[in-house]
């Protein structure tokens, strides 16, 4: 597509496009980098404003405060646990279900698919679901994070589409050798599905890591099951309550400590996003592939 001679209009286009891309990157990255700078800056000093990309008065105190908070540590532990258990559980369930509905000979494959596709469009809503979890004694437990969302029609469809693309002869020849369905699933289909498994695992893991609403709704009274994002949300609302006004912030600063809610929140924000930021660039090809096969949407 190389052009021999680029016209003036072309040059203007390239210049504008480059500017657009630079603006896009700046708008995307600046708030994150600014939060990073504030998280390493003395809290009271930060109230004066004027901190952009580098801390002015460097300190680790904000991070020490975050690490010293019992509920933050509990939140980190629970979040890690729900991310690991939730992802494994969801992956195994969705994969097995997708395996069943993608078998050509399965007697009820279209009925079972439909049964799950309906759940994408119709749901009971917040209140009936809340009452159900309460009646099942799921509220107030760790399992409310893991069990209800284990099967999702969307993830199942992504996996099913991929499995349907594998040649049937794989299954047939294994069965001629006397392999049962479990062997076909675990030894033949699953190893071939590694890329799509990675995609679905990524979707579920990000969802689990970022969840806060379920912690607020179902485990508000159970501080032992709090999550990282829920703790962050509490910090956010404490910042918002004394929002903006420098007088308030200065009043908060008048106490002996050099940390303010704003600076502590910045540190907590960075700590919470760090694992994801470190991981996602390496997983790019998986989610790009996953979105493209799965059709669309999160």
């Amino acid at each position: 597509m190389k052009k021999k001679k680029s016209s003036i209009a072309d040059k203007i286009f390239v210049a504008c496009n480059t500017l657009f891309m630079i603006a896009f990157v700046v708008i995307t990255l600046y708030p994150v980098l600014n939060t990073l700078a504030i998280s390493f800056n003395d809290g009271i000093d930060a109230v004066r404003g004027g901190i952009y990309l580098v801390p002015r008065k460097f300190t680790l105190e904000n991070y020490q405060t975050v690490l010293g908070k019992q509920n933050m540590m509990t939140g980190a532990y629970i979040t890690l646990l729900r991310t690991i258990i939730g992802t494994v559980f969801a992956l195994v369930s969705n994969a097995l279900l997708a395996f069943i509905v993608s078998r050509k000979r399965f007697l009820f494959k279209s009925q079972l698919s439909l049964f799950w596709v309906i759940t994408m469009y119709v749901n009971g809503g917040m209140i009936p679901v809340f009452l159900l979890y309460r009646n099942l004694h799921l509220t107030g437990t760790f399992w409310v994070y893991v069990v209800p969302g284990a099967v999702s029609a969307f993830n199942m469809l992504v996996l099913r589409t991929y499995m349907q693309g594998l040649p049937d002869s794989l299954e047939e020849s294994a069965q001629l050798d006397g392999a049962g369905y479990w062997t076909v699933f675990s030894k033949i289909i699953s190893p071939l599905c590694k890329p799509v498994y990675a995609t679905v695992a990524l979707f579920v893991a990000v969802y689990q890591w970022n969840s806060w609403f379920d912690a607020m709704l179902y485990n508000r009274m159970k501080s032992e099951y709090t999550t990282l994002q829920y703790e962050l949300m509490k910090l956010l609302s404490s910042v918002m309550q004394q929002s903006g006004s420098a007088a308030n912030a200065a009043a908060a600063g008048a106490t002996a400590s050099a940390v303010t809610p704003v600076s502590v929140r910045a540190a907590a924000t960075i700590a919470t996003m760090l694992p994801i930021i470190c991981l996602y660039p390496f997983l790019q090809r998986y989610f790009v592939a996953g979105l493209t096969i799965g059709g669309v949407k999160e």
Partner: peptide, 18 residues
């Protein structure tokens, strides 16, 4: 460009609020 998608709404609203 993918980065913000992986951040929770809590983080995004916090950043926006700042």
């Amino acid at each position: 460009s993918y980065l913000p998608h992986f951040l929770s709404w809590i983080i995004v609203t916090g950043i926006l609020h700042d």
